[in-house]
Design a protein around this nucleic acid. Sequence first.
DNA 1: TGGGTAAACATGGGCGTCAATGGTATTGAC
DNA 2: GTCAATACCATTGACGCCCATGTTTACCCA
Lengths: 159, 159
Amino acid sequence: MGLFLSTIVNKVDRKGRVSVPASFRTTLSQQLFQGIIAYRSFTASCVEGCGMDFMERLSDSAQTFDAFSPEQEDISALIFADARQLAWDPEGRILLPEDLIEHAALNETAAFVGKGQTFQIWQPEAYKAMEAEIRARALKNRPTLPLKAAVKPTGGDGK
Amino acid sequence: MGLFLSTIVNKVDRKGRVSVPASFRTTLSQQLFQGIIAYRSFTASCVEGCGMDFMERLSDSAQTFDAFSPEQEDISALIFADARQLAWDPEGRILLPEDLIEHAALNETAAFVGKGQTFQIWQPEAYKAMEAEIRARALKNRPTLPLKAAVKPTGGDGK
DNA sequence: TGGGTAAACATGGGCGTCAATGGTATTGAC
DNA sequence: GTCAATACCATTGACGCCCATGTTTACCCA
């Protein structure tokens, strides 16, 4: 199981702890670092989350920009400088840093929103509003997605 | 057997459980994840269903968009954020979440409608109406389908 | 070809397990 | 010594697993 799917709302206790959904944890279970990488979204009021492997992919991708180029600078500042590793405790909870809570305007609860390769953490009501907006747009525009050919399951790329 | 075919109506019990048709289960039997992926259709009052492999194809296809692009955002919200992994029990039943039931206006029964690579879940009466509509349109428009060349079954893609 | 039988599938309900959650204790840093 | 982070423990409630039963389909044999 390799994707972050569905939206799960969990409670944030008074210590700032929140359970990472069990399904998200299993998605990350093969990783060396037992926890998540989190950084403030630079497009929305939410927290971006992913595993260390995705961070490395981002790093590789960022190298398409020249070293010392302005784009490289910006990406570094926006992502790598802001990212932190949040290990979970034996119960599967992470401790949300104060500035992340602020940025996403989290209070009692936090919504873990699957985005396939990554996920986001939202204030549930805020996400609901955003989702309604996207859904309304989709109903009008009927977006389509060019489907790539299926990868033959022959042989093992699995695992 | 690799396709979802025909339409099967099954009962939804008071717990919200429904049997996935046996033929659909055999279609998915080779998959790692023993269950279905389900998400609300963003164009109709029904639930979209598929296997994990198809979800991964969608994820691959969605990556033609840049990370952090608006298109990527929308697709994620509409599909990945809404998708649930519904594992079936030893009897082949899944538990339908409340909001999916609402979205498709399901009550006593649910119709599993094969669509080839994927399938849909409808309130039976609603589907009947939709089907009549599609049939009427077809009678008028006479849709055609450019047929691809047959793939040689030489070699083992297996089993 | 028809009846009988057996297997597979669909369905209903009870119970155990695990994830989520809240609280307390212990450890370590400043 | 104080504060904060983390480990430990206990509770609860949803969901997954098990068994029991009804119903349909497929198969076999006369």
